[in-house]
Deep mutational scan, measured.
Amino acid sequence: TKKDTKLYCICKTPYDESKFYIGCDRCQNWYHGRCVGILQSEAELIDEYVCPQCQST
Rank of each mutant, 00 (worst) to 15 (best):
I22Q: 02
R34Q: 14
H32C: 02
E48Y: 09
Q53M: 09
E42W: 03
I38K: 06
Y31P: 02
F20Y: 11
V36P: 00
E44W: 04
Q53P: 12
D25S: 15
Q28D: 11
C27N: 02
T57H: 08
E42A: 10
K12S: 09
P52K: 15
T1A: 03
C11H: 00
I38G: 04
G33N: 05
T57L: 03
L45N: 13
D4P: 10
C35K: 01
C11M: 01
I46T: 13
W30S: 13
C11E: 03
F20V: 04
I46D: 05
Y21W: 11
G33S: 07
N29Q: 15
T1P: 06
N29Y: 04
P14M: 10
G37P: 00
F20E: 13
Y15P: 05
Y31K: 02
K3L: 10
S18Q: 03
P14Y: 09
Y15E: 04
Q28W: 06
G23L: 08
T1N: 14
D16L: 03
S41L: 07
I22P: 01
F20Q: 10
T5K: 14
E42I: 05
Q55H: 08
V36S: 02
I10D: 06
L39T: 11
K19S: 07
E17G: 15
V36H: 02
R34I: 08
Q53A: 12
C9T: 01
D16H: 03
A43Q: 13
S18V: 02
P14I: 07
K19H: 14
T13G: 03
C51T: 00
Y49R: 04
K6A: 15
Q40R: 10
P14L: 07
C35R: 00
I10R: 05
C11T: 01
H32G: 01
I38W: 04
V50R: 09
S41T: 15
R34P: 09
Y31T: 02
P14F: 09
R26K: 08
P52T: 11
A43C: 14
A43N: 06
C27G: 02
L45M: 07
S56A: 14
Y21C: 05
Y31I: 04
C11Q: 00
N29P: 01
R34A: 14
E42C: 09
C51H: 01
D25H: 11
T13R: 07
C27W: 01
D47N: 12
